[in-house]
Design a protein around this nucleic acid. Sequence first.
DNA 1: TTTAAAATACCTCTTTTTAGGTATTGTCTT
DNA 2: AAGACAATACCTAAAAAGAGGTATTTTAAA
Lengths: 221, 221
Amino acid sequence: MPKIKIIIADSHFLSRKGLAIVLEENADFTVLSEALSASDLVNHSKFYHPDLIIIDYTSANFSIDNIQQIVKKYPNTHLLAITDMQSNISIAKALNMGVTSHLLKDCDQDELIEAIYKTAKGEKFMCGKIASAVLIDKSSVNEYTCEGLNISDREMEIIKLIAEGLSNKEVADKLFLSTHTVTTHRKNIMNKLGVNNTAGLVLFAVRENLISPNHFLFAGN
Amino acid sequence: MPKIKIIIADSHFLSRKGLAIVLEENADFTVLSEALSASDLVNHSKFYHPDLIIIDYTSANFSIDNIQQIVKKYPNTHLLAITDMQSNISIAKALNMGVTSHLLKDCDQDELIEAIYKTAKGEKFMCGKIASAVLIDKSSVNEYTCEGLNISDREMEIIKLIAEGLSNKEVADKLFLSTHTVTTHRKNIMNKLGVNNTAGLVLFAVRENLISPNHFLFAGN
DNA sequence: TTTAAAATACCTCTTTTTAGGTATTGTCTT
DNA sequence: AAGACAATACCTAAAAAGAGGTATTTTAAA
């Protein structure tokens, strides 16, 4: 069997080092390169054509959108995501964007190895927490949703702007809508989320990575 | 020279593995144990009396308050914190709580090694980003603040409750204050932070770890 | 093609937030 | 003892948010 050719994509030195050592210990794997940023990843993919990319799309200099870019360009390369625990919606998004498998950084070595073998062959693998987070029907591994929470794209857009501190009127102006429309969206969103004020909306926005807590450069920073 | 005795405290498998391998490569270091939680850390510290604890106090099952607990009980043990990038205030808090040194997970191996040697001797070491974040006067390495941002404890308390979704009146009731007082605090806070609505307050609260983005268990999760 | 859902817009009314002030008390520091 | 700051409380008034509807149009799916 030829070796599984792997690129590591993670901006954290320790995670890369940890991964590299685990991969080196196994004769079936070979690490082609380490990508510290999305642009690294694009360049290295082009040059090496790896079988597998292990990526933390939440780490600095990467984004969840990088997944789709890679999947489209290199359909023969499979992606294994390994991130910290995060929201169901983000995980579902990563899977729907084309990540073959998904683990968490606190899962153990056996799971990692198994995930690598399966993912390289194009088989899906998810650690327990991920699976229970996003699988509606545990028997079908093809559709990923977060039961109950169907926030539309337009609603997401509006949540984001509200979290950025815009008033309903400002959102309306920005999106060329009536303030009534924005108000209605806001109400619908709050109903879906089960919250009743801006604080809830903003926390949701942070959780879904619609906005960074560092969005405001608070005075004196 | 006797070996530097180290405990690794981090709930991320990959970070632990990465650290362990770096430490193994150096004959001056010996890793006594790996702690996956705060209670692990307390037990292992009691048993091993390490020279150095390398900790990610932001990782699951640890908290920034663990620092003070360890420092008080074992004054001969020095702490080296390694975390993802986070807010100035949290970093300053960690340092004031007794962390000897502080790095970020994306710094490189040389810095890590240097930090370990120095920290084990009780000398302070900070990577560039950390230093520029918290040192007022680059020549004195003894006082850590975030210039310009003096939010009082009372104000922090109020920010937290607002971020939890309480109205001014509810905060007032909870703290046995007049709504006028809460309103005044809120205004003062917004002035200090340079924001003009609840969204800004909530983002600040998240950034300072006063609240988790998962505070609300949004419907359907 | 019928149905369902999303996006749009409007109305009313109450509560809350935001912005502009002033002012008193206590504590800590110089 | 003076000064600075934190914590407390009050006043007014405009702007915005929240809760309760209804209703039309467009889009997507069955």
